[in-house]
């Protein structure tokens, strides 16, 4: 009984850890897509951010410098996406694909050229070059209390600062979107850019600000991967998380609070897959490890097929804005 409870706590704990990069990337996509700019380049931005973060953290010995570098590089790629799809009205999907490849290739080439460790960055130690876990007050002292103790000390406490940042970003995003002028305009430009234009607001600048927000959050997601969750960058370490985040965004119908639930669900699936991979169900059959790995994707497809309800994307999404004659 207690063992089962502890297992559940452990799974939930890793759910939190695994859903953080998804959540940050998902919120990143939310800013961009709510402003009418589709972004399948989340993966690439996260990857580039992870590389830049780990590289800067190891060179300067500071996780914070790593974080800043991750964000800057991710923003730079966002601006490329903006330049292609906002300024030059290119196809947003194509631009996103391009960014994914540029990030995938250049992280390896530059990593090899700078560090010569087969595309890895040097491992980050506990000398401040990696985000340490934060123990919330009294975490140790109340660990002994049944049920609540472990929930507090294992599940809520003991994460790196970026985990708390990610979950704080959810209500913050909601507040920005629905309670600020920027949010009002951002939502408007994703629905009807002409209305924004005639109201005397620059569509281009507004959308650029949205993709910059997207870049910041993708940078955070990347830094979390390489400077907090892991101790350094490994080739292709995002491994499709950007795409899962995109699916979560659709699930969440482009709403911040829903986005958190969707990402927790996918994080949970991932946690279960890691925990139970290849586990035999006695007397019945064996679930292949590969099936568990593919399960998040399979579930995404199943959900897309039927149980998602009607997910209506922002009306102007994917459409470059052209002044009508």
């Amino acid at each position: 009984m207690i063992e089962a409870f502890n297992t559940i706590i452990l799974i939930l704990d890793s759910t939190v850890r695994l859903s953080v990069p998804l959540l940050l990337a998902c919120l990143a996509g939310l800013y961009s897509e709510r402003a009418g700019v589709f972004d399948i380049g989340l993966e690439g931005k996260m990857l580039a951010g992870a590389f830049a973060g780990a590289a800067a953290a190891s060179v300067y010995g500071s996780a914070w410098i790593g974080l800043v570098a991750a964000i800057l590089v991710s923003i730079a790629l966002s601006l490329v996406h903006g330049f292609a799809s906002i300024t030059h009205r290119g196809n947003q999907i194509v631009s996103g694909v391009a960014i994914n490849f540029i990030a995938a290739g250049s992280t390896i080439i530059l990593g090899q050229a700078w560090f010569r460790q087969g595309g890895r960055t040097p491992p980050l130690g506990s000398d401040g070059s990696r985000f340490e876990t934060i123990n919330l007050p009294f975490a140790d002292s109340i660990n002994g209390i049944p049920v609540l103790g472990p929930i507090y000390s294992e599940l809520l406490s003991g994460h790196s600062i970026l985990v708390y940042v990610a979950f704080a970003a959810v209500p913050l995003t909601w507040w920005v979107l629905f309670r600020t002028r920027f949010g009002l305009r951002l939502r408007a430009v994703g629905e009807n850019p002409a209305a924004v234009d005639t109201a005397g607001i620059s569509v281009v600048w507004l959308r650029y600000r949205a993709v910059i927000c997207c870049g910041i959050l993708c940078g955070l997601a990347g830094a979390y991967l390489s400077v907090a969750q892991n101790a350094g960058f490994v080739k292709d370490m995002t491994a499709g998380k950007g795409f899962i985040a995109l699916a979560a965004l659709i699930f969440a119908k482009w709403k911040p609070i829903n986005a958190m639930y969707a990402c927790l669900l996918f994080g949970f699936l991932d946690a279960i897959a890691i925990r139970f991979s290849g586990i035999k169900i006695p007397g019945l059959f064996e679930i292949p490890a590969q099936f568990m790995q593919a399960l998040p994707y399979i579930l995404t497809v199943i959900l897309l097929a039927g149980f998602i309800g009607k997910a209506i994307p922002p009306k102007a999404g994917g459409q470059p804005y052209v002044k009508e004659r």
């Binding site: 196809n91 631009s95 694909v97 391009a98 490849f101 540029i102 290739g105």
Partner: peptide, 13 residues
């Protein structure tokens, strides 16, 4: 990288 750049310049741009 080249692939990405080609997609960027021959596609999106």
């Amino acid at each position: 990288i080249i692939q990405g750049l080609v997609i960027l310049f021959a596609g999106a741009l």
